[in-house]
Amino acid sequence: MMFGIKRNHEKIKPLLDCSVKEVSLADMQEGEKGIITHTIGGLGAMHRLAEMGLTPGCEVKLLRKGSFHGPVEIEVRCACLALGYGLALKVFVQPVKANANEN
């Protein structure tokens, strides 16, 4: 059923910055923040990620990365979540410039 969908970022466009390239969570730097654009993979994995709060438009912060393609730990919706490397590769984010939003 994936094939029928043309992925668009219409709904979250206002949050995105067209000049920044999107990367997977696994490619982010420790301490960096980003906005989720989309997830890929099987329907099960995508649904599961969404249910844990990783929905398009949501801000995440990469807290740390494990060594040798280990899991990543992120902060999302005020809670910390560990994601295996395989899953981290399936979540795409647009990094937010560091100084842009500090609270």
């Binding site: 994995a45 910390c80 979540l81 560990a82």
Partner: peptide, 8 residues
């Protein structure tokens, strides 16, 4: 299945 775990 990949790891998804809340870190308390």
């Amino acid at each position: 299945v990949g790891l998804i775990m809340e870190m308390p």
